[in-house]
Design a protein around this nucleic acid. Structure first.
Length: 207
DNA sequence: TGAACGATTTCCT
DNA sequence: GGAAATCGTTCAA
């Protein structure tokens, strides 16, 4: 199955395939590329935790478009978060890019994140990832095909993949649609939404 | 027209 | 472990 065909599948199916994929940002300053290590799936209007839950709106319109485009939104009035639109045109599935490992342009990424930030933390967390790649509101709706300002290209098939509940969401928090590279140091620290129900396995350290 | 609330990060104790 | 920072979106009236 081709990369483009994979992206036509629902978010939860595509999400684990995105681990190891490389997202590259090209600006006047240079290039920064990250290998994705943590992602989170949202599955259209039927998913209570998705921005698409209440239907199409000016903000989430990109989600309702074709797969392979970037959906960017502002979180907490100060952080940009980036998603890859997946599923057939109109399905409104998306995968939130939560963390990655910088594989190109460390110095540029550090200049955007701060001089004291460790390499492993440059793109650890959804807002840190967008900062390292200089992704903002102007990138909403961009095509992620190769050669563009932002591009997403497949990486090696990974086998050590972990699954758990999504971070920060208060609805459908029990759905295990967060995927990460097992044991990877660039994966963000897990913090469940304070409004979410108690975890099914509260004492499992991998959760 | 107004108020509540985030798919968060960072700093402080 | 707790709270602040900060603003667009959503929902109620």
């Amino acid at each position: 199955m081709s990369w483009a065909d994979w992206l036509k599948r629902p978010g939860p199916d595509v999400a684990p395939m995105l681990l190891g994929a490389v997202l590259t940002s090209r600006t006047d300053e240079g290039q920064v590329a990250v290998s994705l290590t943590e992602v989170e799936a949202y599955d259209g209007p039927a998913d209570p935790a998705s921005h698409a839950w209440r239907g199409r709106s000016p903000r989430n319109a990109v989600m309702f478009g074709p797969p392979g485009f970037l959906y960017v939104y502002l979180s907490y009035g100060m952080h940009w978060c980036a998603n890859v639109v997946t599923g057939p045109d109109g399905a409104a599935s998306a995968v939130l890019l939560r963390a990655g490992r910088v594989v190109l342009g460390h110095d540029l990424a550090r200049s955007r994140r701060g001089p004291g930030v460790a390499d492993r933390a440059l793109a650890r967390g959804p807002a840190c990832l967008t900062r390292a790649l200089a992704i903002g509101r102007t990138h909403n709706g961009l095509d992620l095909s190769p050669g563009h300002t932002l591009s997403l290209e497949p990486g090696p098939r990974l086998h050590a993949v972990s699954v758990g509940p999504r971070v920060g969401v208060s609805r459908a928090a029990e759905v295990p649609w967060r995927f990460w590279v097992t044991g990877d140091e660039t994966v963000s620290a897990y913090r469940r939404s304070p409004r979410a129900s108690p975890p099914p396995v509260p004492n499992d350290p991998s959760w």
